[in-house]
């Protein structure tokens, strides 16, 4: 069984965790779709702290002796999944950035060449007006 004082601490920690997520979301410092995993992790943790019998049952199934160790395993599991999701997001962004950089460079090339043509045209037309003035 989880000791009562530990459960109270954990419940407070989880409430604090949700408030933090909420603040981040309100400030738009977190994209909601990336937060779903965090929220899910918090809900599952909270569930197990409020109903420790379920946690104990799960732990016995897995062969873990202390309930606290069970919570650790759970935590680490969530962290690994969240990290993987992050790596996946970074990788997708890398592909997008790569495409953007390439498009930007090709656009810059076209712009550079267009500017050169305009410059040439302008210097020619300048020459024409000059002779007209004469």
């Amino acid at each position: 069984m989880l000791p009562t004082n530990l459960r109270i601490t954990l419940i407070i920690a989880i409430i604090f965790y949700f408030i933090l997520i909420l603040i981040f979301l309100k400030k738009k410092a977190l994209e909601l779709r990336y937060t779903l995993l965090w929220i899910l992790a918090g809900v599952v943790m909270g569930f197990f702290v409020v109903f420790p019998q379920l946690l104990l049952y799960m732990i016995r199934l897995l062969g873990i002796e202390s309930p606290m160790n069970g919570l650790y395993v759970l935590c680490i599991g969530f962290i690994i999944i969240i990290l993987m999701a992050l790596t996946s997001i970074v990788s997708k962004q890398m592909v997008k950035i790569r495409t953007l950089v390439q498009e930007n460079a090709m656009l810059e090339k076209r712009l550079r060449e267009a500017e050169k043509k305009v410059d040439k045209y302008e210097s020619i037309s300048d020459g024409i007006t000059d002779t007209e003035n004469l």
């Binding site: 790569r98 950089v101 390439q102 930007n104 460079a105 090709m106 810059e108 090339k109």
Partner: peptide
């Protein structure tokens, strides 16, 4: 005749830019 990538992409990204240019 050159393309100027604003950030370093590595050889793969640079060569691919060349292929994109060739395609267009």
């Amino acid at each position: 005749n050159f393309c100027d990538l604003p950030i370093n992409l590595g050889i793969g990204g640079a060569v691919q830019t060349g292929y994109k240019y060739a395609e267009r």
